[in-house]
Design a protein around this nucleic acid. Sequence first.
DNA 1: CCCTTTACGTCAACCATGTTGACTTACTTT
DNA 2: AAAGTAAGTCAACATGGTTGACGTAAAGGG
Lengths: 178, 178
Amino acid sequence: MVDVKGIANPLFLREEELRQAIEMLFFAYRDFTGEPDAMLADLGLGRAHHRVIYFVGRNPGITVSELLKILRITKQSLSRVLSHLVEEGYIVQRPGERDRRQRLLTLTQKGVELERRLTANQRERIATAFRNAGAEAVQGFNLVLHGIIDPEDRRRFDVPGTGGPLGAARLKAGAGKR
Amino acid sequence: MVDVKGIANPLFLREEELRQAIEMLFFAYRDFTGEPDAMLADLGLGRAHHRVIYFVGRNPGITVSELLKILRITKQSLSRVLSHLVEEGYIVQRPGERDRRQRLLTLTQKGVELERRLTANQRERIATAFRNAGAEAVQGFNLVLHGIIDPEDRRRFDVPGTGGPLGAARLKAGAGKR
DNA sequence: CCCTTTACGTCAACCATGTTGACTTACTTT
DNA sequence: AAAGTAAGTCAACATGGTTGACGTAAAGGG
């Protein structure tokens, strides 16, 4: 039991490395959401509203059930937030054409503007981190984060033409291995 | 205004790249916390308890105010969670030696065991992602995540001997640039 | 030695956002 | 026509954040 934490013990390094990752994920998420949360609070909205606005903006015409799958919350929980956003004029609903039971969701101009303001903050934070870390690091970041996500949702990041996840990032990483 | 999304437009690629990062961060965090949350629910605990247990385990003898700085919540909010954990025997408090106003927090054996179970899950998820992505990708992941964190908390990840953040990861990345 | 500051705790009220369960309406599918 | 599906609604409840006010004990500076 000598040298438990010494350099000769790979298990300690591994444990330490993994704990660092756990903590960085916590701090990064905390800070990543902090500023948008403050902006939202000024408008009487919360983080839940942000998530809805983000994913509706990203997937115009998305159905309620698709949105529920992404957010992994109940429809009752979504309902409170979504109906508020509709009442306040951030989002419009229209019936689906093929299936008229569906309510297709789209941002209004007001919604688009809010989404832009909120996302600009997050984008800027990430852009700075990307710039400082360099292109290779960004690929590594994408690859690891991709692997942390549940398999069923990884395919959201597949890029159609490339036949693999994450488009060019994956192609390049894969090339280096094979 | 032709070719707005075409390959000739670097702004579109950049925007898309940043949005992918935003979304991956959301999905990764969602899935990273999902399974521990379910374990905690069986014990009548929540994610807030997990965070406290984690950081007390990681920093034995931490003071309440240090913990508050990490979590960025109010003491009233922490109090509810922390006193519950003390009552249930996961954490013990003892007065500080130099400053007897302080309550130094430490996990009990019961607390250590719970912490291990919860963290094992997250560690496994990250370890798998690390293994599949490769060592270089892990360094990139660390470097980018580090850059996303607010500067005042980045130093938590500095490694004493190396004179820079993230120990070896940073040394290697820096060597390539200079 | 007093006085101020600090570390921590507590009570109370409120809010955002998640849950479960039961039920309805409208539409699609078989 | 019957069954299934998409969405909404009402109600009750839990967790974990917030602000504000106040209390206690210890530390530290004049």
